[in-house]
Amino acid sequence: MSTTNVGADDAPWVDGNALAGPLGEVMGTDLTVAELTCAGCRTSRPLAAMRVFDRTPGLVARCPGCEDVVMRVVRTADRVLVDLRGSLLLSLPVPTS
């Protein structure tokens, strides 16, 4: 995970693996292998390919193609809230035993 576009006025972002920790903690599954379909441009990409703005009150994941918000994750005192209205589909592989 690295910060990739730091410029004088650019908001820094990290890759989508930053979502794996807070999501995995509450969902109990490794979401780095998930794919998201952006509701804006309808392109499917691995979660890790999303751009995550983490210097915010929550985590904001944006599609690297159209920059629309695909996911917001907020951790309150006792809950994790996941807003997926910007995603058409979350696709996960069936775990192998």
Binding site: D10, A11, R55, T56, V60, E67, V69
Partner: peptide
């Protein structure tokens, strides 16, 4: 003066 931003500037 920390900069917080939810997207590109």
């Amino acid at each position: 003066f920390p900069v917080l931003s939810a997207g590109p500037t």
